[in-house]
Design a protein around this nucleic acid. Structure first.
Lengths: 231, 231
DNA sequence: GTCTATAACCGGATAGAC
DNA sequence: GTCTATCCGGTTATAGAC
């Protein structure tokens, strides 16, 4: 199970957080490999458990169990539960940023927004747990990522707001409040991750098929683009 | 603080859950009043605490503290934390249903959807904690409200899907997947409650003013209505 | 009905053998 | 670097005096 999504992101930290994972010099290559595999397995398991149970509800016992490691080993790699949590959030922020960068400010609205909405929808599909961890963190009042919101997110948002205002000035879209558009995109795309349980229930208890999801992606895009007069 | 929103809903239970609050015969009128006041205060405090900290993160100590009662008294009225949680969810479901019923299936799309979106936005504004508790519960996999989703919510949704399909047949709106429209409405309106922290941060750390919120309400409505070709 | 004190439990973290 | 056994703090729930 490990490594599919959260591969080897443990060394970096997007949030300016001291997630300093121990830095012991390792001589043999194989040991490094074991270390990375273990860390990846822990991060992968942690993302799921934090998503399903929230910060407090997640137990290191369960995370270790899913990573098929003794709990003591988990604490060997991540000194505290909180440090592990921060690293998970950092990885989520990174994938969010990757999707965000598909919103190219130079493009025309239809192309830029279509790309961005598709990227966000794909992220909700491929990594719903990350979205849930993020949502949980925001609902808690963002104790860990508040600084990230005030820097990276605010900067990114400001640049996109400007871009949208240019589109309005050029008459490419109707005059709307740019932030409202961004909120609608975030809300709608992330809903497919955060509310999977509800969506599945209303789909006769069947998870959305790839086909259904692709259809949703196209419709979401079209409704929003028409909604702002870009089509 | 107590009683403003969650007033005296403790006797009922929308979710079919055995939230049987003790049923001791009370002789004096004043005792009943004290009981109701205490229960309301507990439910009011509980909604906030569950919203801010999630199910596991919420402590009965903190709930009791905010209700200005000793913890033992809280346990006198609600035997377990889980029973209290279920009652909170039941109250949230009730308010959700009240808003849902503004979506009159007989009306024209513009009128029906405008009313519904406004009602949902108002709910996000007046009772953001309830929305967060709901979101948390869904993200946990809906252990408590799954049955509610499969009955009340599914029935309500089915009737609205039919209604939307009629609108499409009559050519009042473009041919869309009705569920997609509902998801977009839910996602966008609830976003203003669940992601208050993020929205506030992007609004120069100022909570949205009433004026800003009213503007958002109108824009959300217009973008969605235009998006489906109702305007 | 109220409240203090406490029992019973659980989870994070660590000691220390391997 | 791994893992078992254990400590310690915090949380739910209750006993029992008022």
């Amino acid at each position: 199970m490990p490594g599919t999504e959260a591969k080897s992101k443990h060394a970096e930290s997007l949030l300016n957080i001291n997630v300093s994972i121990m830095s012991k010099a390792v001589t043999k290559k194989s040991k490094t490999a074991i270390r990375e595999d273990n860390i990846d397995a822990i991060l992968f398991a942690a993302e799921s458990v934090f998503a399903e149970r929230g910060y407090k509800g997640a137990t290191t016992t369960e995370i270790a169990r899913r990573a098929t490691l003794p709990k003591a080993n988990l604490h060997y790699y991540f000194e505290t539960k909180e440090m592990l949590y921060k690293q998970v959030l950092s990885n989520v922020a990174e994938s969010w940023l990757a999707a965000a960068n598909t919103f190219d400010t130079i493009d025309q609205p239809v192309e830029a927004l279509t790309r961005y909405i598709h990227a966000k929808m794909d992220l909700s599909r491929s990594r719903p747990e990350g979205s849930k961890v993020w949502a949980n963190e925001i609902m808690r009042g963002a104790p860990v990522i508040q600084h990230y919101l005030e820097t990276t997110l605010q900067d990114w948002t400001a640049s996109r707001v400007q871009c949208i205002q240019v589109w309005i000035k050029k008459g490419l879209i109707r005059p709307i409040e740019p932030l409202q558009l961004l909120y609608m995109i975030w809300a709608t795309t992330q809903h497919y991750a955060d509310f999977t349980q509800q969506i599945t229930t209303l789909n006769d208890n069947q998870p959305l098929s790839d086909k259904q999801f692709e259809s949703a992606k196209l419709q979401v895009t079209e409704i929003i683009l028409r909604g702002i007069g870009a089509l």
